[in-house]
Amino acid sequence: MEGKEVIKLAGLTKSYGGENVLDEIHLTVYEGQIVGYIGPNGAGKSTTVKLMLGLIEDYYGDIYIFGENLKDLDYSYKRRIGYVPENAEIYDSLTAAEYLIFIAGLYGIDEEEALEKARRLMEQFNIEHVLHSRLSSFSKGMKQKVLIISSLLHNPDVLFLDEPLSGLDANSMMVVKEILALLARQGKTIFYSSHIMDIVEKISHRIVLLSGGSIVADGTFDELKEKNKQGTLEDIFNDLTGFHQHKEIASAFVEIVQGETV
């Protein structure tokens, strides 16, 4: 299924204060792939995404997007990218409609078209009744749906999603998972970061595990299973990141909770 090269990281290194958050990352992602990008907290997942979006600068190595070096590109390549950040900031004194029209406008989509598209997409998510309500009154799941819509309004070729399902109920989750699968089948590339292993296991064509700034595993779920002789992605994750003491930690934690407060 190797199509066109969409993203290529060549020896990508980023350091903060002398410490390498990303250490010589080599990764090539092809058209139509859903890449599950996983790793422990602080492994450098969001740093990678932010580098590709030009939100952080000063790195070593090269980033190629749509075959071109990021260093030679101006801002307009972002037109083909959709992004759902984790803990996204949002202008919450705007209504959903205003926010979506605003975001669409930044991508050069005119107001009527944006509103019509936003309304129809919100209808599919069952939240069209709050189209003209302030985002500040939205529940976490509703906000998340708006963010997902805002990342797709301009029909991007690449999607960067960071915990896109957080706050969604089980039914909406199924819808979004299906949406992602369909988008990938149409040739869109999806970069999917999450801590929920069984979802990553199910939707990803390819899993990349980042730990301590380096890629420690890269392949389909079946390939990883074979190599590590473990049953689930969660087990593989624990194994590769060298974590086995969850039981001891849990019991120590509960002991502290029950003990006298200091």
């Binding site: 004194s93 930044l106 309500s133 302030r134 500040s136």
Partner: peptide, 24 residues
């Protein structure tokens, strides 16, 4: 123009408090 308008609109709204809601 879009960004400036958005900012001015936001300034004209009462500050969202945590629990208040209502249509604009």
């Amino acid at each position: 123009r879009l960004i400036l308008n958005m900012k001015l609109v936001m300034d004209s709204r009462r500050i969202p408090t945590v629990y208040s809601n209502t249509k604009v």
